[in-house]
Design a protein around this nucleic acid. Structure first.
Lengths: 114, 114
DNA sequence: GATATACTTAACCAAATGGTTAATAATTCG
DNA sequence: CGAATTATTAACCATTTGGTTAAGTATATC
């Protein structure tokens, strides 16, 4: 798991498109060919190819050449980066739920917080 | 939790920008004013205001007017949508790890899968 | 009431995104 | 070899995105 800002940009950016999310969801079940992946969508093959490249660059899938075909497989690790970031936010947030405690123990409280 | 495709577009899209992720991470600790949120970043206030609007439209934060200020608070629910989607992918994927089982039990196996 | 403060909205711009069709590359099949 | 299949790359286009500065709005303060 890398979890630097650039890779999170790429991962979340890749997941922001419904076609790419659907592609990834398909791959979660089994490896698939490019044509096979593109088939359910009403877009050209080059458009699908681009989506796949975006997912690959974000580290969310891996392509391997098999004859004249390309086998696409999901790489679950990159999703873990996104998950870890979200979890971090939620941990911070749940800690803040003890805000009253913090308030009562904070002598330097200046009263200018929202 | 809504978890429709459009709202996931908005949530993942909002999280795809490093400034917006940093804003959200700040808000995870405590509610903050717009100016206060914008201060750490080397961008104009209107730019920050736009980022905040993107986060708000994605349902990731809520703004309430307090005098001439705007208090920004994180809304953790929307993050749950993203988390749920990622979890779903990972569940599908972990089920597929039993692929050998599936293969052995599948009479209709045609052998044309990658 | 005049002025400062805290924003948002408007208008604009460059770069990125998501789509297209046409061309190219690599492999298989007749 | 020649033709079909499976992609990718190139060139192009419209829209969205992330930034700017300038103007507007609402509230607080002198």
């Amino acid at each position: 798991m890398v979890n630097n800002s650039q890779s999170l940009d790429a991962v979340f950016g890749a997941l922001a498109d419904p076609t790419r999310r659907a592609i990834l969801m398909q791959l979660a079940d089994r490896p698939m060919w490019v044509t096979e992946l593109a088939e359910p969508f009403d877009i050209s093959l080059p458009a699908a190819s681009k989506h796949i490249r975006v997912l690959a660059r974000a580290g969310l899938l891996r392509q391997t050449k098999v004859g004249r075909n390309r086998k696409c497989e999901i790489v679950a690790d990159a999703l873990g980066d996104a998950q870890a970031w979200i979890n971090q936010v939620e941990i911070f947030w749940s800690e803040r739920l003890n805000a009253l405690d913090k308030f009562l123990n904070d002598d330097t409280q200046k009263g200018n917080q929202p």
